[in-house]
Amino acid sequence: MAYSDKVIDHYNNPRNVGQMDKSSQEVGTGLVGAPECGDVMRLQIKVNPETQVIEEAKFKTFGCGSAIASSSLTTEWVKGKTVSEALEIKNTDIVKELSLPPVKIHCSVLAEDAIRAAIGDWKKKNGVAETAEAAQTVAAQ
């Protein structure tokens, strides 16, 4: 099975590898793993408290090329998005962008889980309601 050019590109030149201060109020950290293949993925976001825009995103992934490419791509996508926009990223979007074959779809699921976990962590830290609807209700009041 061959990797697509996009996967190879992200694998050879991963974007936004690194880490941010886990204890910072503005940073949300998502650590997820796939027992099937032993992959483990840490994705972090730094959110502007005023605008809720994700200003910085970092990842570190141990796993196959597709897992690295999925997380690399995800960090690129979430940067500049608001938290609620970032939650709309679906693993199927990643599959499409990277042309992942069926056996590698779980890598994209992992990346989606990671961004959700990171946002969840940030929300918990900042006392933001879990669901988007609830957040809108709060904002409207």
Binding site: P35, T92, V95, V103, I105, H106, V109, D113
Partner: peptide, 15 residues
């Protein structure tokens, strides 16, 4: 690997 299906059905993270 068949746990994450093609239509993107969610599997819970069990770790």
């Amino acid at each position: 690997q068949d746990r994450a299906s093609e239509n993107g059905a969610k599997k819970e993270s069990r770790m």
